[in-house]
Amino acid sequence: MNSPLINVCDVSKTFILHNIDGRKVTALQNVSFSIAPGEHVALAGSSGAGKSTLLRLLYRTYTLTSGEINFRLSSGEWVDIGKLTDPEVVALRGREIGYVSQFLRAQPRRSVIDLVTRAGVSRGMSRNDAREHAAISLRRLNIAESLWEIHTSVLSGGEKQRVNIAAGLISPPRLLLLDEPVSALDPENRERAIDLIAQLSEAGVAVLAVFHDLDAIARLATRIVVMSHGHLIDDGPAQSILPQLQPTDVHS
């Protein structure tokens, strides 16, 4: 196996709710695992198990309570994501670590093609290359060309989600965090999105993903990490873990 791209070591996360009598809510406890380039790790576990918490910690949307998240930069040097300054995290996001959420985030009046092209440019592509790749992805995701020049706010939920995938996957970063990226798609469009996500692994991108159905996990995951009540309870090759999973193990 390749040497890891990211090592999650003994990570815990506790929220302190100052305005509810300082109540403490522990969302993750002593979680350790790693991901190598080209691996697609699916997070399984029932609702509230801590899957999304883990994704957000890796992106530093959540602050770390304890433990280390060591990430190998493209320069080969290692950094602990939990200890980076905010400007360093800003610099790390995009080219090194990406996050594709369930929803297309609020965007100003941007056309579909412009939004995806800009995502490519922000990760170092030339404008022409980015536009070309954007067109390829949008076609593969079945976004009709008649929609390319219109403003994303008028798209349907499923169309928005596919545009979000196109933008998230263009010139992909080295680690991609996927939080239910295909949850709103009909079966045909879901297949297309899954095909595009599968290509990431061939391209050597390390993926950590949360899906709402077992089928997507079966199609994409090379490894499965199972979470329960904030603990990591199993971690192994997809083919050995998959048979043990229940449909309730993937509800977010």
Binding site: H18, R56, Y59, T61, Y62, T63, D86, V89
Partner: peptide
Amino acid sequence: EDALTDQLLEDPQHPYSQKLVT
């Protein structure tokens, strides 16, 4: 508090930030 904007919105640390975001 100083923070990444998404972190401030999702995981505010200071009691006052939590109150504002809520």
